[in-house]
C-alpha cells in the first residue's frame, strides 16, 4: 500500500457561462509508494496539474477518493508541501522570511522554539546555496534563485510528500539542468530526514521526467486518464553522466513515441 492512494478519481468542471461542463480526467487509479520519485507527464489539458492540486488538498475531486496514509485528503496540510511553477514567493517577504514562513505562521508554529526554527532554515539556505541572499526580496532574485528559495521554503516546512508543479517550467534550459541536478542531490542528501521523501513531480518535459523519476505516469487527453506507467531503471545517484547514457535515450524515445501517438490521437 502506497503513502498516497487515488481510487477512481475524476474531476469535472461545472458548466459556466462561457462553456459547457468539461471533464478534466476520470477513472484515475494511482498508488504512490513511500520514498519514490514519481513524475507525471502528459500534454497540456490532460489534467496533471489538477491531479496534483487534488493531492495537495487545494481542490476536491468530483469523483473518487484520494487518501494519504489511509486517511482521505480533505484540505491542504503541511504534510504535503508544494513547489509552484511561478514560485509563489511572498513578494513582501525577504528570502529568509519566505523560508521561515510556514514554520512561523503555519499550524505547526508552536512546534519549535525560534532558535531551532532558525537552525532549520539556515540548514536549507546552505543546502540550496542561497547564503548571502537571505535579506533580498524575491524581485531581486533570478528565476533560478527564486526556485531555490521556494525549494528551501518547502523543505524547511518538513513535509512528508513533496508536490512539484512544473517547478522548472519557467526557467531557461541551462538553469533548468542545473536545478534538476540540484534537486536530485538535495533529495538524496536531506539532512533532517532519515529516509528519502516521496516526490510527485508534474512536468511536460520527458527528459526531465526520465532524469528525475523512479516511475513515470503518462497521462492522455480527452478525457484525461492514465495511459501508462513506466518504471525508470536508471541507477542512482544520477548526474550528468546519466543523461549521456544509452538507457536514458532509450527511455526518452519510448516516452516520446507514447506522447506523439497520444497527440496524434487527440488531434484526430
Amino acid at each position: 500500500m502506497g503513502i498516497i492512494e487515488a481510487t477512481s478519481v475524476g474531476m469535472t468542471f461545472a458548466a459556466t457561462r462561457q462553456g459547457s461542463a468539461t471533464v478534466a480526467f476520470q477513472d484515475v487509479d494511482l498508488d504512490i509508494e513511500e520514498g519514490e520519485f514519481l513524475c507525471i507527464v502528459g500534454p497540456s489539458g490532460c489534467g496533471k496539474t489538477t491531479l496534483l492540486n487534488i493531492i495537495a488538498g487545494l481542490e476536491r475531486p468530483t469523483a473518487g477518493v484520494v487518501s494519504m496514509e489511509g486517511e482521505e485528503i480533505e484540505g491542504p496540510s503541511p504534510e504535503r508541501g508544494m513547489l509552484f511553477q511561478d514560485y509563489a514567493l511572498f513578494p513582501w517577504k525577504t528570502v529568509w522570511d519566505n523560508i521561515t514562513f510556514g514554520l512561523r505562521y503555519g499550524v505547526r508554529r508552536r512546534q519549535y522554539p525560534r532558535r531551532r526554527r532558525d537552525e532549520i532554515a539556515r540548514g536549507f539556505v546552505d543546502l540550496v546555496g542561497l547564503q548571502g541572499s537571505e535579506g533580498k526580496y524575491p524581485h531581486e532574485l533570478s528565476g533560478g534563485m527564486k526556485q531555490r528559495c521556494a525549494l528551501a521554503r518547502l523543505l524547511a516546512n518538513e513535509p512528508e510528500v513533496l508536490l512539484m508543479d512544473e517547478p522548472f517550467g519557467a526557467l531557461d534550459a541551462q538553469t533548468r539542468l542545473v536545478l534538476q541536478d540540484e534537486l536530485v542531490r538535495v533529495w538524496g542528501a536531506e539532512p533532517s530526514a532519515p529516509r528519502r521523501k516521496t516526490v510527485v513531480f508534474v512536468t511536460h518535459s520527458i527528459d526531465e521526467a526520465v532524469f528525475l523519476a523512479d516511475r513515470i505516469v503518462v497521462m492522455g487527453r480527452r478525457p484525461g486518464r492514465i495511459k501508462e506507467i513506466v518504471t525508470v531503471d536508471l541507477p542512482r545517484p544520477r548526474g550528468t553522466q546519466t543523461r549521456a547514457g544509452s538507457r536514458f535515450r532509450e527511455l526518452t524515445n519510448l516516452l516520446w513515441d507514447e506522447m506523439r501517438d497520444e497527440a496524434i490521437e487527440a488531434a484526430r
Binding site: 508544494m82 509552484f84 516546512n157
Partner: peptide
Amino acid sequence: ETRLVDAARTLGLGHRHVLTHV
C-alpha cells in the same frame, strides 16, 4: 494571487493566518 494563497495553505497556514499574513 491565488497561487500565494495556495502556497500558504500547503505550508500549513490556517484561514486566519492566510488572511493576516498573505
